[in-house]
Computed example of a mutant assay.
Amino acid sequence: MTANPIPIRNGEPDYLAELRDEGIVALMTSSMTDMRRASDYEGLDLALVDTTRMADATVKSCILEYTRLKIPTIALVPQHGVGMFDPSLPFADVMVVPARSGEIILRARRLLSAQPEKDESVVRAGDLSINHTNYEVAVSGRSVNLRFKEYELLLLMATNPGRVYTREQLLERIWGYDYLGGTRTVDVHIRRLRSKIEDRDHQFIETVWNVGYKFKDPSGW
Score class of each variant (00 low, 15 high):
residue 6 I to M: 02
residue 12 E to A: 08
residue 14 D to Y: 07
residue 14 D to F: 09
residue 14 D to Q: 12
residue 15 Y to S: 05
residue 17 A to Y: 05
residue 18 E to F: 04
residue 20 R to Q: 13
residue 21 D to S: 14
residue 22 E to I: 04
residue 22 E to G: 01
residue 23 G to R: 10
residue 24 I to C: 00
residue 25 V to I: 14
residue 25 V to M: 12
residue 27 L to S: 01
residue 27 L to K: 02
residue 36 R to P: 00
residue 36 R to T: 06
residue 46 L to C: 10
residue 49 V to E: 01
residue 52 T to N: 07
residue 54 M to E: 02
residue 55 A to Q: 12
residue 58 T to R: 11
residue 59 V to F: 04
residue 61 S to T: 07
residue 62 C to D: 03
residue 63 I to F: 05
residue 66 Y to E: 00
residue 67 T to G: 08
residue 68 R to S: 08
residue 69 L to K: 15
residue 71 I to F: 03
residue 73 T to I: 06
residue 78 P to F: 05
residue 80 H to K: 14
residue 80 H to A: 15
residue 81 G to Y: 04
residue 81 G to C: 12
residue 82 V to L: 15
residue 82 V to Y: 08
residue 90 P to S: 12
residue 92 A to G: 12
residue 94 V to S: 05
residue 96 V to E: 04
residue 98 P to H: 09
residue 98 P to C: 13
residue 100 R to S: 13
residue 105 I to P: 00
residue 106 L to C: 11
residue 106 L to A: 13
residue 114 A to M: 13
residue 116 P to T: 07
residue 116 P to K: 11
residue 117 E to N: 03
residue 119 D to M: 06
residue 122 V to W: 05
residue 126 G to W: 02
residue 127 D to Y: 08
residue 130 I to K: 03
residue 131 N to R: 10
residue 132 H to Y: 14
residue 133 T to R: 15
residue 134 N to G: 03
residue 134 N to L: 07
residue 135 Y to H: 13
residue 137 V to T: 11
residue 137 V to N: 03
residue 138 A to S: 15
residue 139 V to C: 07
residue 141 G to S: 11
residue 142 R to S: 11
residue 145 N to K: 14
residue 146 L to T: 06
residue 147 R to G: 15
residue 150 E to L: 06
residue 155 L to P: 01
residue 156 L to R: 09
residue 161 P to H: 09
residue 163 R to V: 14
residue 163 R to T: 13
residue 164 V to K: 03
residue 166 T to S: 15
residue 168 E to T: 12
residue 169 Q to R: 15
residue 170 L to M: 14
residue 171 L to W: 00
residue 171 L to H: 05
residue 177 Y to T: 10
residue 180 L to R: 14
residue 180 L to D: 14
residue 184 R to F: 08
residue 185 T to M: 13
residue 185 T to A: 14
residue 186 V to T: 02
residue 188 V to P: 00
residue 189 H to F: 10
residue 195 S to E: 13
residue 198 E to I: 09
residue 212 G to K: 04
residue 215 F to I: 06
residue 215 F to L: 05
residue 218 P to W: 02
residue 218 P to N: 05
residue 220 G to V: 11
